[in-house]
Design a protein around this nucleic acid. Structure first.
Length: 528
RNA sequence: GGUGCUAUCGUCUAGGGGUCUAGGACAACGGCCUCUCACGCCGUAAACCCCGGUUCGAAUCCGGGUAGCACUACCA
């Protein structure tokens, strides 16, 4: 039976959205768009102790920046005039809309109560009074202790206590949890779209806590299954770290009697550290000097600041393109993809099974490519914003078209807009000093004399164009037999302060005759 | 420890029994271009984890081993 494709991205608001999470969101989005389905955003905030203020807003902003659209749920943009008559976003809160709300799990308590009761009534779950301290003691006393069919009879729960005792404990307000009663000795089959059939014996599963009375909230496992069912999710595309609990989820669907509408699973390979082994973590970014979050994040809870791709000068398209290829590959050799191309070509069966080391260098290359695609004029604002205070006035004083032209000249030699200034500063600010190495290599004994002569030659040119300058200067060099390299490199140093930069007539064009002569003069004085 | 997943150049990957003396990209290195530095172009180096089996033939299928990773909470 063909079901409408509905997928969800369901992060926890426990901090900035990790780049691996971004990729998960992206794959979900691509899959939904390709199949004409819906992409939902649900906030899984069932752990009240780990909640970080601002995290939800951050997730929405990050997804928006990246162009990962949400059709339903938190942060969605209700299509005007569509058939969806969604509730208005609450004042001051991010948009929350759709027929299956609320989309924040902490606001769905009553819904979960009903399903916890169903499981309790049907005998698929039971109430347990063991305190965290008691469980800890038990684990210390018994190696490899697991709360399951073998051990639940020795614990304090509704299976071992009389009904009256259970009532009495609940009546006097004892804290309890509801645990899932896993039947032992059963092979549970999970069909994974990426990995195929995965079989796990229920003996290794423990009686997972589904609900905790302490904060009147379900745990991830219960909330996840209930919500995916109620929200009619057709495909669960999530990280590989969830694969071990997939059998539990299958059992839960079965216990609820929802097996026939159970979503299909696809467990994505993990993003690994660039060096060494293990999952990519925030620490790796700090250690190796690259962001692991889409946007800069100021954590109000612990006061830390994490750098982001956006603030580092990345284009969202570059991040998307880079991430898309980390774990997925199209049929051909194409590397550059627009979002639309990704949507058209994405396919779960071309997702790799093995984890992908996070290759930051490749990410830079992607940004370089996208930078080359942009015109200087459209980069103007970003460039000016990235200019340090010392150079700001000079850039703002310059003609906008000239600045755009400079950007066009220089962009090919950088990966990021913020790197442009150190390459292009000399266009706007005369060199304060001359690079030692360049002088040693390109500034010869005869250079001052050459430059004095060049000054005279240039002074006589009225038509200040590249063609004219080239004709006159090259003619002069040829006539005097000075050697093009010798003269031009010295000239370059007087204008740039170092032996680098674009073609020299591009530089004189931007500087103009007066500034060119002035720099020449200053250099002659200082380097003679 | 237990369970599961995974395994091709340093990295991301192509490959689905013969077309593989294993292709592409990043990074590295060399050259060309050239007034410099970049870009670009051309090129070099660089991999099928190991052992068995199936087969005329295995990077590809199967088994075992090894290694890596994930999970093993009243976190997600």
């Amino acid at each position: 039976m063909e079901r409408k494709v509905r997928v969800r991205f369901a992060p926890s608001p426990t901090g900035a959205l990790h780049i691996g999470g971004v990729r998960t969101a992206l794959y979900n989005y691509l899959f939904a768009r390709q199949h004409g389905g819906d992409m939902l955003l649900r906030i899984e905030d069932t752990d009240s102790t780990r909640f970080v203020p601002g995290a939800e807003e951050y997730i929405i902003e990050a997804l928006q920046w990246l162009g990962i659209g949400i059709d339903e749920g938190i942060g969605c943009v209700p299509a005007s005039g569509s058939t969806r008559e969604w509730e208005q976003a609450k004042e001051g809160l991010p948009c929350q809309a759709g027929p299956n709300g609320p989309y924040r799990q902490s606001e769905r308590r009553e819904i979960y109560h009903q399903y916890v009761d169903q499981l309790l009534q049907s005998g698929h779950a039971y109430i347990a009074f063991d305190t965290p301290a008691e469980l800890e003691a038990k684990r210390a006393e018994m190696a490899n202790f697991q709360y399951d069919a073998r051990t639940r009879n020795q614990m304090v729960n509704s299976l071992t206590l009389s009904a009256e005792e259970v009532q009495a404990r609940m009546a006097r307000g004892d804290q309890y949890v509801v645990r899932f009663k896993v039947e032992p000795n059963e092979d549970v089959h999970v069909h994974d779209l990426i990995r195929g059939e995965v079989v796990i014996n229920s003996n290794i599963l423990d009686d997972k806590v589904l609900y905790k009375s302490a904060d009147d909230l379900p745990t991830y496992h219960l909330a996840n299954i209930v919500d995916d069912h109620l929200m009619e999710i057709s495909h669960v595309i999530r990280g590989e770290e969830w694969l071990p609990s997939a059998p539990l989820h299958v059992l839960l669907y079965r216990a609820f009697g929802w097996e026939d509408t159970m979503p299909q699973f696809a467990h994505l390979p993990l993003l690994l550290k660039p060096d060494g082994n293990g999952k990519l973590s925030k620490r790796d970014g700090d250690r190796l000097g690259f962001p692991v979050f889409p946007l800069e994040f100021h954590n109000q809870k612990d006061g830390t600041v994490s750098s982001g791709y956006r603030e580092s000068g990345y284009f969202p398209e570059a991040v998307i393109n880079f991430l898309a290829l980390l774990g997925w590959h199209a049929t051909g050799d194409q590397e550059m993809f627009t979002m639309d191309e990704l949507i058209a070509q994405f396919s779960l069966d071309r997702v790799s099974k093995a984890g992908a080391k996070f290759d930051y260098e490749k990410g830079k290359w992607f940004n370089h490519q996208y930078l080359q695609l942009r015109q200087g004029a459209e980069l103007y604002d970003a460039f000016v914003a990235a200019v340090p205070e010392a150079g700001k006035a000079a850039v703002q004083a310059a003609d906008k078209a000239v600045v755009a032209h400079v950007i066009d000249l220089m962009k090919e030699r950088v990966n990021f807009v913020p790197e442009l200034w150190e390459q292009a500063a000399f266009f706007f600010v005369a060199p304060a000093e001359y690079d030692e190495k360049s002088l040693k290599k390109r500034w010869k004994e005869e250079s001052p004399a050459h430059m004095r002569e060049l000054y005279k030659v240039l002074e006589g040119i009225d038509e200040w164009t590249a063609e004219k300058l080239d004709a006159v200067v090259m003619g002069w060099i040829a006539e005097k037999e000075y050697g093009v390299g010798l003269v031009m490199n010295a000239f370059r140093i007087t204008l740039v302060g170092a032996a680098r930069g674009p073609h020299i007539w591009e530089i004189t064009n931007v500087l103009g005759k007066d500034e060119t002569l002035h720099r020449l003069q200053v250099a002659i004085e200082r380097l003679s």
